[in-house]
Amino acid sequence: MLDDRARMEAAKKEKVEQILAEFQLQEEDLKKVMRRMQKEMDRGLRLETHEEASVKMLPTYVRSTPEGSEVGDFLSLDLGGTNFRVMLVKVGEGEEGQWSVKTKHQMYSIPEDAMTGTAEMLFDYISECISDFLDKHQMKHKKLPLGFTFSFPVRHEDIDKGILLNWTKGFKASGAEGNNVVGLLRDAIKRRGDFEMDVVAMVNDTVATMISCYYEDHQCEVGMIVGTGCNACYMEEMQNVELVEGDEGRMCVNTEWGAFGDSGELDEFLLEYDRLVDESSANPGQQLYEKLIGGKYMGELVRLVLLRLVDENLLFHGEASEQLRTRGAFETRFVSQVESDTGDRKQIYNILSTLGLRPSTTDCDIVRRACESVSTRAAHMCSAGLAGVINRMRESRSEDVMRITVGVDGSVYKLHPSFKERFHASVRRLTPSCEITFIESEEGSGRGAALVSAVACKKACMLGQ
């Protein structure tokens, strides 16, 4: 009897593995994704193909990295998701002549009506938060230079001027797309009239992360975010950046690689679950690469896999709870928690219980395998993109072996128990001629924006502006 049951459990697990095998990517698959990513990057950089390229390769006008001589107080704003952060950054000489960066910050959550109302409502709310922060720190009387981390696709015309191309991540505030974001912020500050600010720089969160990590390690020339969304930036040779005049030196390019796949480059790798996630998203047909990796989508992918296993009578005796059938019910943090389970399955059992399920031991094991399959594919897909960037940098610099540091931020990278190990191992397999160091950014977005502002202020002083 026991043997029969054991055989049935083994057969069930084997069927589960057959279904989950769809998520496995072979090294040849990853090399294919990497080569296609490089081709799209090239198209994004070139003037004649930029418009139709899915990977936009947006110039950021960040050319210099901090040298350690900029000092002063800077205000930093960070808008990239449902939370908005205001930070005071003091850049100065530390002990023994070292450079020191001290920060104080406060988080504000953005109400739904500000995210989806008008641009005026959104930026009025942001300036209200700045006003509140300055009151708390008794700094209303000071006109501070301000660095703005704005983590949406922007076409820069200068370091302090950028046109919002399109909202992502659930934002829909009308009247912002096609307009200068810094102008919208300046107008809102003017409307309030109770404080003055000098907006000197606007950067993407990947750029802010790279600059913040450069402060720790001067070989950091790539910034990457794996959180709600997924994106990367890197220092490109100016001669390859056709959208900006000049051939000397390097400029940081914001790849906006989340949109890779929007022209069909990933079609052969998309599964039924991916198509369902895409169809029910706020932007169907867009940001397809990001939807395979980002935390906004990972939990939902797992939920759809679990429903398939229920329908195949391989999980929960073929019956799903009402909660499990509800879109968004299986949160991405559950994926991390399930994979963090120590082996007694308590954590998995508790999560499934909150979803109205009474799982068996085998159910718990199957749910864990589903989570591992989805998150491992995410790590491997992400590795193909980064390997594409790094191999490109090595080739354009004609280096036999390139040493490089990548600064990384984002909740999936930082909080998932195995993502970074799987990701690092896969990147290294795909970049055999590179020695890569990964560092995690601390308060990256805010500190990085302030350091970019410090560079901009120093330049302005040198130019006598």
Rank of each mutant, 00 (worst) to 15 (best):
E312W: 08
K140N: 02
G264F: 14
M402L: 09
D132L: 09
A379H: 02
S353R: 12
R7A: 11
G68K: 15
H141Y: 07
E395H: 07
E242I: 04
L184E: 01
Y125F: 06
L270F: 05
E27F: 11
L315N: 11
T376F: 11
Q106G: 04
E242T: 14
V203S: 01
F123E: 06
F438E: 00
L463P: 14
M381E: 01
N313T: 08
N180D: 11
M107P: 14
V33P: 04
R36C: 13
K39H: 11
K13E: 12
Q347T: 08
L146H: 03
T65R: 15
C461E: 13
S69V: 13
L184D: 08
E399T: 12
Q138A: 09
Q337H: 12
G299I: 00
L2Q: 11
R345Q: 07
S396I: 12
Q106F: 07
L301K: 08
G92K: 09
A11D: 10
Q287R: 12
D409G: 01
E128P: 02
D278R: 06
L415T: 04
C461H: 04
T60R: 03
I348V: 08
V427W: 10
S151W: 03
K13C: 14
L165Q: 04
R377L: 03
S280W: 13
G295I: 02
G229I: 05
L144D: 02
E221R: 10
E51F: 07
S281A: 13
Y215L: 12
L25A: 08
R447D: 02
V86H: 02
K142T: 05
H416V: 07
C230Q: 08
E372N: 09
S127L: 02
T149S: 05
V89T: 10
C252F: 00
E40V: 04
S280H: 06
G285A: 10
G285R: 15
F316H: 15
P145W: 05
R392W: 12
S100P: 09
Q219K: 13
D132S: 07
N179F: 08
D341R: 09
S426V: 13
T65Y: 11
S76D: 03
E28F: 09
V367R: 00
M393W: 04
E265V: 12
L2Y: 11
R403A: 12
A53K: 08
S441P: 14
L307I: 10
I404H: 09
I110Q: 01
K169E: 05
P284D: 06
N240Q: 15
E237G: 04
R368T: 08
R275P: 00
Q24S: 12
V86M: 03
S336V: 07
V408A: 09
D205N: 05
I211Q: 12
D365I: 14
T405D: 15
K291R: 08
L58F: 14
D187Y: 02
A208N: 07
M251A: 00
T326E: 07
D158L: 02
D198P: 05
A387L: 02
A53H: 04
L355T: 12
P59D: 04
E312A: 13
G193M: 12
E27V: 12
G356H: 14
C382Q: 02
S281N: 13
S131Q: 02
F171W: 07
P432K: 05
N179Y: 08
D135N: 10
C457G: 14
K169M: 04
C233F: 03
F74R: 15
Q138H: 13
D365P: 09
V302Q: 15
E17F: 14
T354H: 07
T326S: 10
S131K: 04
H137A: 08
G147Q: 05
V401I: 08
T82R: 02
D132T: 04
K172I: 03
M251D: 13
H380S: 09
T361Y: 11
H141T: 06
M402V: 08
L58A: 01
G227W: 01
V452T: 14
E120D: 07
Y297T: 06
R155M: 02
M37E: 00
T354L: 12
Q106M: 10
E221V: 14
K458N: 10
A208G: 06
I348R: 11
E312Q: 15
R394Y: 12
T149E: 06
A425H: 14
E67Q: 08
Q219H: 14
R428T: 13
